[in-house]
Design a protein around this nucleic acid. Sequence first.
DNA 1: GGCGCGACGGCAATGGGTTGCCATGTATTG
DNA 2: CAATACATGGCAACCCATTGCCGTCGCGCC
Lengths: 360, 360
Amino acid sequence: MPDHTRPPDKRVTIYDVASEADVSPSTVSRAFSRPSRVNSETAERVRQVAERLGYRTSPLARTLSTARTQMIALVIADITNPVYAEIVRGAQEAATDGEYTTVLIDAQESDRREREAIERTMPTVDGIVLASSRMSDSAIRMFAKQRPVVVLNRAIADVPCVVTDNPRGVRRAVEHLGELGHDHITYVAGPEASWPNGIRWRSLLEAGMELEIKVRQIGPFSPTIAGGERAAEELCVRPATAVLAFNDQMAIGLIRGLGQRGVDIPGDVSIVGFDNIVAADLVTPGLTTVAAPLYAEGSAATRHLLTMIEGAPGHTGRPMVLPVRLVVRQSTAARNPSPGRARPPWVRQRPAANPAARLW
Amino acid sequence: MPDHTRPPDKRVTIYDVASEADVSPSTVSRAFSRPSRVNSETAERVRQVAERLGYRTSPLARTLSTARTQMIALVIADITNPVYAEIVRGAQEAATDGEYTTVLIDAQESDRREREAIERTMPTVDGIVLASSRMSDSAIRMFAKQRPVVVLNRAIADVPCVVTDNPRGVRRAVEHLGELGHDHITYVAGPEASWPNGIRWRSLLEAGMELEIKVRQIGPFSPTIAGGERAAEELCVRPATAVLAFNDQMAIGLIRGLGQRGVDIPGDVSIVGFDNIVAADLVTPGLTTVAAPLYAEGSAATRHLLTMIEGAPGHTGRPMVLPVRLVVRQSTAARNPSPGRARPPWVRQRPAANPAARLW
DNA sequence: GGCGCGACGGCAATGGGTTGCCATGTATTG
DNA sequence: CAATACATGGCAACCCATTGCCGTCGCGCC
């Protein structure tokens, strides 16, 4: 008696289903990819046979003829930075909803790594979300010419962008510090290649101008806890009473670095960060910070990307702006709350004229 | 004069290169995919022509005939948990070295999500690394039948595994607590579906037995800061002087939860965590914890997976065991360091007999 | 009765490399 | 010099689903 089972190592294809269901392969294909194009009874029969034979449509083969992989790339600057966790979640959720798979690329804060990874991945994805890209505008535009691209946390002309309301965030922080009596704010800068770094500084300049608060900048430093600790060293040389850090990780580094040097926070120095990462609530004192809707960022950017992939024009006018809010914790306080108490000497000295101090 | 440039919207294929270089398409293909199979001069010429024409080999098309996508999936339980950041890095690095791309899947601590995502992704990847899977052994074995799979942080018979030395880590923690004079240890359990959770508890039982230290377990709780805070509530009902938490996030939740209730750490309670996440060094007091070589885990698992994909047998004997070490910070101290000082009442009362206390 | 139209299904080309097998030519060996 | 081996390149089948185009058939309308 002949064995009618097919060799188990062989994939079941539409051709197998077709001959078994006594239709042509194209009908089988249509039964799955455009059911309306085929008689519903036929479609049902085909589906039954497919089920019985264990047929699974091959996404790889489909890819070749449709030129769609149903995959998108999500590029982040540093997976070690917890801000990205929620962004990734938001993006993944949106992608999954749209039947897309996400390829995560960790650029490790490196322009070169980022570019290389994208170049390798580009041909296999239908679109790209660039979260906090460290590449040049022109590099990004070049990629945007080849595939749909949405940029997150950065505004670039002619490329669809999603950003948070940095000016408002900075403004709120400055107002908060101003209300506490601070009249000088030092900005501790992050990577120069980071767009939010630039706009935060410019927003600070502007807010300082309007609210009559003096501002200066030190840095750049690495946007990490270690970077913040290094900034703390420099702050000891050129002291401040109020500090706005590029992000929470740096702010945490500052808290630790200054704390180790005997500086009291918020007694001697008030510190404000950006992002509201989980750890902001863990350090002592708790970090006052500008919170962004991280999940919404990832999700909005991804949804926009998907519409572009589906053929929508990709709205490159003004970037989409997401709201922020100030979360006040214990790292900020009124300036000199206890005037009777001896101030550490470093607060007393006037900063020496120093070319690195960009503005005072 | 005729225009010899090709229509710009048309991809350059091996056929274009072939006719331009005056060889057959197969030669072009081989010039790229097995250069040794073709005369080096010919190969060079082909490469030059390809360069001139701007030819890029299409990974999609290659995929169809080789049945290799050069992609692997990395499944993690919760991208919000910082332990995975380093694991992801290690895995990415190893994958990139091997010319593979990584698809990251965040299971969000859900068995179902994990399974569904894997099912969707399976057909497009060459292999899978399961880091801290929450699925059943049988589900994992089923996947392992269809694709090469390496399991991280879990030991399953007949599936290649990479684990850290949990027994030794627990042992070191128990020794440490023992030396500090603790004779009871409470284990605060994480997810029941987590394999490390099980083995940590069993290792604790064993170490307690040998070192004559009594142990009990409470939980399970969610392996998050919030979970740890909930555990803190329960600990107030049934106090302890030494706690081993399933992971650092829970330990941090405990520190906060107990701290808010006026419990002094480490004065009243010593706490030990697992993983040595960055935040362990940020909380006050700093968290004593069992550190695992996270980067090495991701990298080792991935490298092993790649060898399996290349056809190696996939060594399913004993799991590969990675070493751990105890990082002592400030959350552990000698029991009752200041005997003169009034102990909080909750430490004095004997725990009531309670069926939920699995062992005392 | 003749004509137009929509529904349905099949044919065959297409997407772009990969590879087993064979043919030719050159080099090595006895 | 014959015989065997190896290097090299081409042919054509193959991977598997998608889709433009066409033929057929049944139905309704003038």
